[in-house]
């Protein structure tokens, strides 16, 4: 029996390692291709390790993507902060102060989670144009803040539901008001909620392509659009394309590696009620 169990365990680990390898395969390809020189790129030797390491393609990718990198940071950080703050306030109002029609309001907000953004794109661009925000990072910040409200509200509402109502009730009896409770009780307990919401929003905004390509033109484009432009160009070699893909995904990957626990909680927030 014990021997059989040991064989089963070995098979289990072998399978897991094989599957993990499969999921990591694209990363291997990106890494080795990025480290090859133009001359070393050959279709038949795609899987081979580079004969010598070259950072030329990464440097070349950086020269093209660098400015767009700045755009993406200027976009993602404010949009993340604004939508998380709004989500926190909304989540507090919806979870700790039940009022008539709260469920209708919640539905009204959540519906925005599931719309295909094509269905708002034509009016959106005209309104941004009228506001003088077309082709600006500020315009994209506004767009991502507003369309980020549904998910951040959901994350914080679920998060605050797990805070016991008793302590809120006793604070109310003690005469602490709406904002006092938020400021001195809810906010200090919200740090991990902000981490979850922040990571989720940062990743979503950084990775977004549709709004970026619709709202901005060069040189105001975020990094995702710049990457597609590089990849779509016939003259750019595969090693530079892969280096660009690597650079474009580096910030969100680093955040993921450091804080994957919180990333998964954001992932589950959209599907599992707290």
């Amino acid at each position: 029996m014990l021997a059989l169990r040991r064989i089963n365990r070995t098979l289990l680990y072998a399978l897991l390692i094989f599957l993990a390898g499969l999921y990591l395969l694209p990363i291997y390809v990106v890494a080795i291709t990025s480290l090859k020189t133009n001359a070393a790129i050959s279709l038949s030797q795609m899987w081979d390790l580079p004969s010598h390491l070259s950072f030329a393609s990464i440097a070349s990718a950086w020269a093209q993507l660098g400015p767009n990198f700045g755009n993406s940071f200027m976009l993602a950080i404010p949009a993340t902060i604004f939508s998380s703050l709004l989500g926190s306030l909304n989540g507090y109002a919806l979870s700790k102060w039940r009022f008539k029609g709260a469920n209708v309001v919640f539905f009204f907000i959540l519906f925005g989670l599931f719309i295909p953004y094509q269905s708002v794109l034509i009016p959106l661009l005209r309104v941004l144009e009228a506001m003088g925000l077309y082709n600006t990072i500020a315009g994209l910040i506004l767009v991502h803040t507003v369309y980020g409200i549904p998910i951040t509200t959901l994350i914080f509402r679920n998060f605050y539901t797990s805070i016991p109502d008793d302590i809120i009730e006793s604070a109310k009896i003690d005469g602490t008001g709406y904002w006092g409770i938020y400021r001195y009780m809810i906010l200090p307990l919200s740090i991990s909620g902000f981490v979850v919401s922040g990571i989720w929003q940062f990743t979503q905004v950084w990775n977004n392509f549709l709004f970026a390509v619709a709202v901005t033109n060069p040189p105001n484009q975020p990094v995702t659009v710049a990457l597609v432009n590089i990849a779509g160009s016939q003259t750019v070699q595969w090693n530079v394309q892969m280096a660009s893909a690597l650079l474009a995904s580096l910030p969100t990957l680093v955040v993921y590696i450091l804080l994957s626990k919180y990333f998964v909680r954001g992932l589950l927030a959209g599907s599992v009620k707290g």
Binding site: Y23, N207, F209, S249, T252
Partner: peptide
């Protein structure tokens, strides 16, 4: 892979 862009 969820953490990287569809474009990437």
């Amino acid at each position: 892979p969820m953490a990287i862009s569809f474009v990437v």
